[in-house]
Amino acid sequence: MFHVMRNSPFYGTSDLIDRFMTSLRTLFPLGVLNRVSAPAYDDGSIDAYVEWQVAETVVRLELDVKLGVLRPDGVRDAFVTPGSVPVVISPFLAPATQEALARAGWSYWDPTGNILIVSSHPPLAVQRTGATRDPDRAATDPRPLKSLKGETTSEVMVGLLANRGATSLRDFARDRRLPVSSVSRVISLLRYENLLTPTGGGPIVLRDRRLCAERWTEDYGFASTFSPRRYFSLGGRESVIDRLRRSDVDYAVTGVSAGQAWFAEKGSPGRLAPSEIWIYTNDLEAVERAADLAPDQRQGDVLVAHSEFLNREHSFSWDGVSYVTPWRIVGDLLSTRGRSAALGADLLDDLVTGDSDAQR
């Protein structure tokens, strides 16, 4: 691993340089000497430079990493030093930008396969054509998705937050059993708001899970997104969860009760007493019967939301009760106010800083 002298606050510079070096090593057939040195630095006017040897020719490539979108009108003239080739590398370079770079004296590369390396002294020329449209920015302005409020969007966000590694859009959609189009729209909005790490058409990587969760809950909410029905429990609110525990209906508890259960399972109970019971189910009538509930839209303290994600999202069980995945609990609590939101913030801290067992 090497120290990045510029752009260091942004993850992705070293990754792009590594991928550029790997790409160089594949440009000539086996049997042709093709060697790339480890990156090095000089006075900080460039991001890095590498020595590239092809057969008997050795050139010094001076790398200028552009993590953001480089537009044609943003291209400046290259400063060419004798024996060196100035190279812009970026997650994606549009055809018009490539033309502007070439006119200004730059060589260039992006991970989609666009490459131009031209050296006069010593003579060397390589050119390949890759993607003409940015795979990472399918739609950025205007945005097809205006907020992160929707039910399907919540599934995408829960899945992204729970996924600690990197994944492709299609693999993620397949694993979560979600429409590719729905996942793509959410990814486009997150990318537009700079919440994803640029990967040049590679995997989906969140910059910061905490920021993503907080941004999601600016739009999302249990009540505003799922419009739950309110009920009064004929046997008392305390009996609701016990009745569900003994039933065979599909349900999952969320909200304060779920946050309490998460910490109780970890040996830290008693943070906040719930004033309401929040439940997801795919069968409202079955939950009504099992928990002995009567509709009460004005003062009911048992909220039951119809949802279709129960068979797609992992849940956890504590003391025989089913609870939604912890990242959904975070979303449901952070979108509230007061002490319940504080409980959500505590759970968010636990998931972000905790070990892998907390990522369900």
Rank of each mutant, 00 (worst) to 15 (best):
S45P: 00
L169I: 14
G12W: 05
S8A: 15
A286Q: 06
D18M: 06
E62L: 05
L347T: 06
G113I: 10
S154A: 15
Y11C: 03
P82W: 01
N194V: 10
G202Y: 02
F28I: 05
P29Y: 02
R229G: 10
E151C: 00
A78M: 08
G300E: 06
L148M: 13
Y280S: 04
G113Q: 07
V85G: 07
S8F: 14
G270E: 08
T254Y: 06
D175M: 08
I187R: 12
Y11G: 04
R229Y: 09
V69Y: 01
V330W: 01
R25E: 15
D357R: 12
F226Y: 15
V186D: 04
D15M: 12
S84G: 07
G300D: 05
S227N: 12
I279M: 07
A162Y: 00
L30Q: 12
I329T: 15
A131K: 07
G105L: 02
S257G: 03
P86W: 02
A166E: 14
V256Q: 01
G200Q: 07
V156D: 02
P179V: 07
L67N: 03
T57W: 05
I279F: 07
P274W: 04
E51V: 12
D248E: 13
Q98C: 15
R174Q: 11
D208R: 01
G165C: 09
L124T: 05
V205L: 15
S90L: 10
T13G: 06
P326V: 07
Q359H: 13
V88D: 05
A102I: 03
Y323I: 09
V58D: 00
N34P: 05
L116A: 09
G68T: 11
S247M: 08
P274E: 08
A252L: 09
G31N: 02
D15N: 00
G344M: 09
S307K: 00
I329H: 00
R237G: 13
S8Y: 13
A286P: 09
R246S: 14
D242T: 11
R35E: 15
L33F: 10
T225N: 02
I46M: 11
I17D: 07
F263I: 13
D134R: 01
G44M: 09
Y280H: 11
F226N: 08
S315I: 11
A223L: 12
S184G: 09
Q297G: 14
T13D: 13
K149S: 09
L145W: 02
P274Y: 03
L16F: 14
P135N: 06
